[in-house]
Simulated assay, not measured.
Amino acid sequence: MNASEDETAGKDRPETAQAFMALPARTGDSRELFLECLADLVRAVGLDVPAEPDPDDRRGWRLRVRAALRNAGSEGLPASDAAFGALMKAAVHDPDPSFNRQFVEPALHVFGRRRVRSALLEYLRTGTDLERAGAARAWYWTALPLRLPNTRAGNDLGESRTDSEDRSVLVRVWNEAALQEFVSNENLDVRRCILPGLPLWPSAYPPELHALVVTAVEIARSHPDEYIRHRVEIQVSG
Rank of each mutant, 00 (worst) to 15 (best):
P14G: 09
R101N: 11
D129T: 15
A82E: 14
R113Y: 10
L35F: 08
P24F: 01
R66V: 06
D48K: 13
H109D: 15
R161F: 01
A9R: 15
L144H: 15
H109Y: 15
V232M: 02
P97M: 04
F84E: 11
E218R: 14
S164N: 13
R13D: 02
L35E: 12
S160Q: 05
E122V: 05
F34D: 04
Y205A: 03
V232W: 03
G76E: 03
V183F: 03
E75G: 10
G238L: 03
P196N: 13
E5T: 07
R117W: 01
A177Q: 15
R221K: 14
E165L: 01
M1K: 13
F20N: 05
P78Q: 07
R147G: 13
K11F: 11
W139L: 06
D189Y: 12
G46M: 06
R229A: 02
R231Y: 13
F84A: 05
I194K: 13
S222W: 12
F182W: 11
R172K: 09
P55V: 03
L63P: 00
N175M: 08
A72M: 09
R13Q: 06
L148I: 12
S184T: 15
R66N: 05
E165G: 01
R64L: 02
R221F: 08
V49T: 04
R113S: 07
F20D: 03
G76L: 02
A68K: 08
R117V: 00
F20L: 04
E36K: 07
E5K: 14
P149E: 11
L195K: 07
V92T: 13
S74H: 12
P55F: 03
S74W: 08
P207C: 00
V183D: 10
P145Q: 09
N187C: 15
P53N: 00
L144M: 13
L47W: 09
R70G: 08
R115K: 02
A138Q: 04
L200T: 09
H210M: 01
Q102M: 13
H109Q: 15
V110W: 10
S98T: 12
G28E: 15
S30Y: 08
V116S: 00
Y140H: 15
A51R: 14
R66M: 07
L23N: 02
Y140K: 15
R113E: 08
L23S: 02
I219D: 13
S160G: 08
E165H: 04
A79E: 09
E165S: 02
P199I: 08
C37Q: 11
D56K: 11
A72I: 10
